[in-house]
Write a protein that binds this DNA or RNA. Structure first.
Length: 478
RNA sequence: GGCGCGGUACCCAAGUGGCUAAGGGAAGGGUCUGCAAAACCCUCAUUCAUCGGUUCGAAUCCGAUCCGCGCCUCCA
């Protein structure tokens, strides 16, 4: 079945037909590195990471995700904290990469930086000037939007409507209020690069046009980013790239929805702002990733502490199931996996679900019954067929997880990480807990259940849940 | 004002013309357990914001209304 992707430009799902057979080229707008990544970044890059992981099952994929490491915000922030802009950008790139690694977001094939592509950017601006698509004013270069037919198509905007709209501080040097900067003359003290128009730096949008064409060609398959980039960022990219090359730009436009907090857009001014680091302090990275995948990437997703707590409980269940599964079929047995049509449907259905515009929410829902089945089998007396079925299911979950970026670490590692963080959070004294459990074990041995229950109650009051099993008593924090 | 998205059970959330409206959480009942916990099983929307319309048939298409949100300015 063909892969269908919702295309912002046409407003409908379109079948992916790669320009080069067997190969998909995709560009996703990366972060402007002037601060720590927030959960909106996490959503975007988890969404595209998952899409790319799925695409790689079928195609050779070239995935480019840039870093915007020179820009007004970086300069402003650097001045505020008294740091060199380049150093500040480099610092936040490192932090960003730590976050992405935690979230199991793979690196893109190419992660180009703006500052390392000045020659390409200047060439592109020069081409646009030469073609009459752009003009120079006092060392600035502007793109002339009214020279570009079809401006506003992506954002479904009409140039005349926008013209009528009242705008603040229209730069009178611009020929049209919507004209945007390709190159900005440097003010004193700002970082600059030499150019035919004097010392300056790239405008807000030109970098992506320059870097995408360098690594993917003038026309490529998919361009992605957050919904907020549709206008003007992506609109402007289209204008620049097409005006320069005279060829189509990206074939399909993918945009992810926002992360909302309290049903409102997360923003610094509203004070409902969370960095990835904030969240990872309280929750496991797999919890955050799972949470981000439970809603379709195009819909808004609502973030709250309560929801994350519920998600973590679910993720813990998944990993506990996997841990039990691994303990059962992990070693020893060389019995080949057993499968049948029904069991094979799991991956087939996953494929079909992901083919429909990367429906991770449904995929995760479908996976529920697999986990239930595993637990069901696990608590029976296992015959050979059941054991071999479990082997097959383990392979299935690993395969599906590899696309979703879940279950890539040993379950034990994740569970221990979750437990350790909770203990640190609550400041629970592990030794005291274990001492109480030992006392309770004695009481139980002596059939003094009243005392045993009293101790359990005491532990419960500390937030400690205990589980008795044939193998002994284990505990966890509620 | 212009453009766009959405309103599905107590909560979260799939589903965009046709089998019984996925799945998760919560809740209630059960199996297991000394009792619990965990796991498993069962129950839990004749109904998809409202009102009309199209159709043999609509949560799904069309129109109107109400409500929520986003973009139009840096933003994932």
């Amino acid at each position: 079945m063909p892969l269908k992707i919702y295309d912002t430009l046409t407003g409908q799902k379109v079948a992916l037909e790669p320009i080069h057979a067997g190969e998909v080229r995709i560009y996703v707008c990366g972060p402007t590195v002037y601060d720590m990544a927030h959960i909106g970044h996490a959503r975007a890059y988890v969404a595209f990471d998952t899409a790319v992981r799925f695409l790689r099952r079928r195609y050779k994929v070239t995935y480019v995700r840039n870093y915007t490491d020179v820009d007004d915000k970086i300069i402003k922030r650097a001045a505020e904290v008294g740091e060199d802009p380049a150093a500040l950008a480099a610092r936040f790139i490192r932090e960003f990469e730590l976050d992405m690694q935690a979230l199991a977001v793979n690196n893109a094939d190419v992660q180009p930086k703006v500052t390392e592509h000045m020659a390409e950017i200047i060439d592109l601006v020069a081409t646009l000037v030469a073609k009459g698509a752009a003009y120079v004013v006092d060392g600035d270069v502007y793109f002339a939007v009214d020279k570009f037919e079809g401006y506003g198509a992506l954002g479904r905007r009409d140039l005349t409507d926008m013209e009528a709209g009242a705008r603040v501080e229209v730069d009178l040097r611009k020929r049209h209020p919507m004209d945007f900067a390709l190159w900005k003359a440097a003010k004193p003290g700002e970082p600059f690069w030499e150019s035919p128009w004097g010392q300056g730096r790239p405008g807000w949008h030109i970098e992506c046009s320059a870097m995408s064409s360098k690594y993917l060609g003038e026309t490529f398959d998919i361009h992605g980013g957050g919904k907020d980039l549709i206008f003007p960022h992506h609109e402007n990219e289209i204008a620049q790239s097409r005006a320069a090359s005279g060829k189509p730009f990206a074939k399909v436009w993918m945009h992810n929805g926002f992360v909302n907090v309290d049903n409102q857009k997360m923003s610094k001014s509203l004070g409902n702002f969370f960095t990835v680091r904030d969240v990872l302090q309280k929750f496991d990275p797999q919890t955050l990733r799972y949470f981000l995948l439970t809603t379709h990437y195009r819909s808004p997703i609502s973030f709250s502490d309560q929801t994350l707590k519920e998600t973590e409980a679910r993720v813990k269940y998944l990993y506990e199931t996997l841990a039990r599964l691994e303990a059962k079929v992990g070693e020893g047995s060389s019995a080949p996996p057993y499968t049948n049509d029904e069991l094979q449907q799991v991956v087939a259905r996953f494929e079909a679900t992901m083919e429909d515009d990367f429906n991770t929410a449904k995929a995760l829902g479908d996976l529920s019954e697999v986990f239930t089945l595993v637990n069901d089998l696990l608590q029976r007396d296992l015959g050979d067929t059941e054991l071999r079925t479990l082997r097959f299911l383990k392979a299935t979950l690993t395969e599906v997880g590899a696309v979703l970026g879940l279950f890539v670490e040993p379950p034990k590692v994740v569970l221990e990480r979750m437990a350790a963080r909770k203990q640190a959070d609550r400041g629970v004294d592990q030794k005291a807990v274990e001492a109480l459990i030992a006392l309770r074990a004695e009481a139980r041995k002596a059939k003094d259940f009243a005392r045993a229950d009293a101790i359990r109650k005491e532990l419960l009051a500390m937030g400690v849940n205990i589980k008795d099993s044939a193998a002994g008593t284990t505990w966890e924090l509620a």
